[in-house]
Design a binder for these strands. Structure first.
Lengths: 259, 259
DNA sequence: TTTGTAGGTTTTATCAGACAATATATTGAC
DNA sequence: GTCAATATATTGTCTGATAAAACCTACAAA
């Protein structure tokens, strides 16, 4: 679990036992390079290294985390793949301007959600949902297959019968993702991570009142119904209504998060 | 430029001069690992290795491309960062289901655009633009700063005065990206790659008639005007109209591409 | 003074070969 | 047949060396 294996790591000559432990946050089963990518990525998104800045070089990371250069390199390659970095010989790894970042990437999004301006982040995600989801629902109403409809209805029903808030949120996520899939445009699929991230943030923020839950459930069922009846316009409107309801919850309680 | 440097690559004992050259497509200045990531990524998106398939192992790639294992590993890490792959010891690198792919990534998108179903790809991109851009224009009309407006107007004007089709397309791209930026939602920015990709595909497909160009220019100017006048509803409508016009061009001439 | 050019230096890029960790496959015991 | 121990193949990590690229410096020439 902990890094710094202290294996056969005896420097030639003197044995310096003064090097700092430098814990690298690790999740179970996650590789070292993944942990490093997470750590550096988080620091970049968080703003520790503003765009244009040159990161510490490989050797430096290698010694601060007590890992090999190759592990660091692989981590850096991952961040390059997400356009957070670009690196060239002699010049080092430079943080790219934020316009280049792939904000819709799952990891980048999660780092964003962890950064100080979490609240602004949630608002941005919510607004984005307003832009995309009503239209997606309309398309879903027009093109859904029976199989896709079953998935939507199933998730909606699970939402209603879920006993824990966590289970409800999970079903909620499935519901909205199923709609995206039913819309029949492949490019909508990656946006599922936004819904996931948004609902998860919401989950942390609020514990809803029973009345809120009842009302929200009705709004969801209305969406399900209109997609089932294949009414694009009404499905679009129903989603807009649901999102407006979520907006209220956010502005109403976002002030006092319960983290 | 060419790979296979044939340096001090003399195997112990016999010298086998029978190994195939195995050219790896390289761009000027691109590193080996980047070239490998491109090649493997393209093959995956193209469908050579369907989701669920296990890729050849590191050693195999290493010898087919005549590069070191580390170069291959770094390439694979990049593809993992885009969720095209996941890999575990003993089992190998397995292609992830397509729902996991980050389709909105610049590279993945470009691989998609190179794959056989290019036409379907273009249609999907175009439809996605219908979903997002009208709303983005409405937001831009409501929130643009004077500086952002100058950028939009500038690009629009350049479109009108461009002498080559390529220059026009470049200005066109800038125009739409500027609108996305002016909309004031950071999550819209990464969608710029879609516009880029879509217009570029379009560029390959059609050489427009002069009348088409004149009409398209008017439609763009109408968008510019409504954003300048800060009329969200009219801006939204103007973008829808432009996209509908583009649709016609695609269905009208998409049948006979001029590649 | 300015300009060009040749080295020197720092950093990433690539290579090679070893060992560790892990998940599957195989074998053996009961 | 079931379960546990062992073998095996593949990625993960480490080390240390060399190559290539880009910036910096010093110096020479116009």
């Amino acid at each position: 679990m902990t890094l710094n294996k202290e294996k056969n790591r005896a420097p030639t000559g003197t044995v310096s036992r003064t090097e700092p432990p430098s814990q690298l946050p690790r999740f179970a089963g996650a590789s070292v390079h993944a942990a490093i990518a997470n750590e550096i990525g988080l620091r970049i998104v968080r703003g520790d290294y503003p765009p244009g800045t040159v990161l510490p070089n490989e050797a430096k990371w290698s010694e601060t985390f007590n890992v090999s250069r190759s592990a660091v390199r692989e981590a850096i390659k991952m961040l390059m793949a997400k356009s957070l970095l670009s690196s060239r010989p002699k010049v080092g790894s430079r943080v790219e301007p934020r316009e280049h970042w792939n904000l819709l990437d799952r990891d980048v999004l999660s780092w964003y959600a962890m950064s100080p301006d979490r609240e602004k982040f949630l608002a941005t995600v919510q607004e984005f949902r307003h832009i995309v989801e009503p239209e997606a629902a309309a398309l879903a109403a027009a093109r859904r297959t029976d199989e896709q409809m079953a998935e939507i209805s199933g998730a909606c029903h699970e939402m209603g019968t879920a006993t824990t808030l966590r289970a409800r949120t999970a079903a909620d996520t499935r519901f909205h993702m199923a709609i995206l899939r039913a819309a029949g445009n492949d490019l909508l699929i990656p946006l599922g991570v936004l819904i996931e991230s948004g609902l998860e943030s919401l989950f942390v923020y609020v514990t809803r009142e029973v009345n809120d839950l009842r009302h929200a459930q009705q709004l969801h069922e209305e969406i399900e119904r209109q997609i089932r009846l294949q009414k694009p316009e009404r499905a679009r409107a129903a989603v807009s209504k649901l999102l407006a309801n979520t907006d209220e919850i956010i502005v109403g309680r976002g002030e006092r998060p319960q983290t």
